[in-house]
């Protein structure tokens, strides 16, 4: 047993479960790849890397760039964390686009003829939703800024503690 664990790297149960799983995978893969195997393989491997090696680097880079480019505007005003007022509407608008991009960009050729519904409405709707999301975020940020500045001004107007006691 210990020799097995040393050689294999885990318990025999781990191996049994994985073999059972791979057997089922093999059974389904043979059928999945029965027609146009190369194309299906490209799609499957493409699916595996789509998020981890394409989407994630892109959105991480965008996030880091937003941080770097928009950081440190020298203002006398107190600093307010702002990144999430940009992140959240971008994320929300982004997932809508990610899911519904074929309709938004009118990419589906059979759609209007099959459903007898005109395409071309989706881009406007997505843009309108995006506008509402960013406007709501801007409003929330403006309210936050006002609150913080008022608090800062109130703190300024109050006499600094210990002033009278100065020698």
């Amino acid at each position: 047993m210990t020799r097995f664990v040393r050689w294999y790297g885990s318990s025999p149960l781990h191996l049994l479960v994985l073999i059972a799983s791979f057997a089922l995978t093999g059974y389904a893969v043979v059928r999945l790849f029965a027609v146009r195997p190369l194309d299906v393989a490209i799609w499957f491997v493409g699916a595996a890397i789509l998020h981890d090696l394409i989407l994630l680097p892109l959105y991480s880079l965008a996030d880091l760039s937003a941080h770097t480019v928009l950081r440190h505007q020298a203002t006398p005003e107190p600093q307010v964390p702002w990144i999430n007022y940009l992140r959240v509407p971008t994320f929300l608008s982004g997932v809508l686009l990610l899911v519904w991009f074929p309709l938004i960009f009118d990419l589906s050729i059979p759609y209007p003829g099959a459903a007898r519904l005109p395409e071309g409405v989706y881009l406007g709707r997505w843009l309108a939703i995006t506008a509402v999301l960013f406007a709501a975020s801007a409003l929330a940020f403006a309210l936050k800024l006002r609150r913080v500045r008022r608090a800062a001004r109130a703190a300024e107007e109050r006499p600094a503690p210990g002033q009278d006691a100065a020698p």
Binding site: T25, A28, D39
Partner: peptide
């Protein structure tokens, strides 16, 4: 669901067998 048939083959077949490959893992 958006009738954007760019995947390689019949949706029915791909989605069904793909589901079994996925569920095994």
């Amino acid at each position: 669901i958006q009738l954007y048939y760019v995947f390689p083959g019949s949706f029915y077949t791909l989605h069904f067998y793909g589901a079994w490959v996925f569920i095994a893992a």
